[in-house]
Design a protein around this nucleic acid. Structure first.
Lengths: 173, 173
DNA sequence: ATTTGATATCTTAGTAACTAAGAGAATTAG
DNA sequence: CTAATTCTCTTAGTTACTAAGATATCAAAT
């Protein structure tokens, strides 16, 4: 056993570690949705609302990849539960803006406290220079995943019998 | 604007970048499932099968958080599509082992090629020492998410009206 | 002003995948 | 040998989704 790992070993371990932690992250999100008693799509929409602020129903459909009909259902549930409000746009009365009811939404936010605490603890183990490297990596990684998502469209050559329409979700923003 | 970011700014940006890239990663997985024409739960089970090899139906239920009934459906679909095989355990004939049909499963694997390529490209921009830091971080991060998942159970004090039974998914392995 | 076409959301009907509960078969404990 | 336990599957009912189209509004052309 060599004391310093070969680059190949490093890359393998890195891939596995990334895969594991991201899988576990997904599970955390599922657990939060379960506890909060709302569907995962609903939670995803809440996330988007927090990131983007006030968005239209159509934009939610676009970003989540759901149909507008499905979004109607999502917003119905969230509105009934008090997490969001529908507001018709005054200048274009076809549009419906969805906005977060902050006080109510904070009830969900508290389920993310354990995650934030854990992450702060982790980040506490790194100095500023190391954090800069991690930030660079996170940004590079994001760009990489975007590229991969784009390249994925190119993999489709021989459409099998029943193929979904491949309505791919655009990245947020 | 200071040339070097404050630690606070770094942490904020890091959180956002991580969130973004992990969200986009989830979307990539959804896109692959769509293209392959199988449900996301089915895809998740395939992932587990690749990681763990031969697993029982019950283990799949445990790890995915689905009921055993749901797993029956998942395996039915995957088996029908030729991705997996059911094999009764000879020593305990109640058990059903699920195993991947490798040749067929490779058809799915090819949808991950763009992602692997993108990640290799990203990792190419880092030297061994930097990769070691990233590996350390990925492992710390995994541990952090596990802790957070555990701590999440503690957040439940005042059970609201209708609360899911909080059947939380255990980490893989 | 009216018509035509485009846009934004919602409605309806049908489908797929889930849960809860329990049945059936095999195993283990007393 | 019987009873309790374990493991998967079945059944009935629910939920959230899609596809298609209805409804309402806006924008453009004449």
């Amino acid at each position: 056993m060599s004391r310093t790992k070969s680059r190949e070993t490093l890359l393998q371990e890195l891939e596995e570690a990334m895969r594991r932690s991201s899988a576990q992250g997904v599970m955390y999100g599922q657990a939060v949705a379960n506890i909060a008693g709302i569907a995962q799509s609903d939670m995803e929409c809440m996330d988007i609302l927090f990131l983007e602020g006030r968005v239209t129903a159509g934009r939610l459909a676009e970003v989540t990849g759901l149909t507008t009909g499905a979004i109607t259902g999502v917003v119905d549930r969230l509105e009934k539960a008090g997490y969001v409000r529908r507001e018709r746009d005054a200048s274009d009365r076809r549009k419906v803006f969805i906005s977060v009811v902050v006080e109510k939404a904070e009830e969900i936010g508290k389920f993310y406290v354990p995650m934030q605490a854990a992450m702060q603890k982790v980040w506490g183990g790194y100095n500023d220079e190391e954090l800069r490297l991690l930030l660079r990596f996170a940004n590079d990684g994001y760009k990489g995943v975007l590229e991969a998502t784009e390249a994925l469209k190119g993999v489709i050559e021989t459409p099998p019998a029943k193929r979904a329409s491949l309505k791919m979700k655009p990245p947020i923003r």
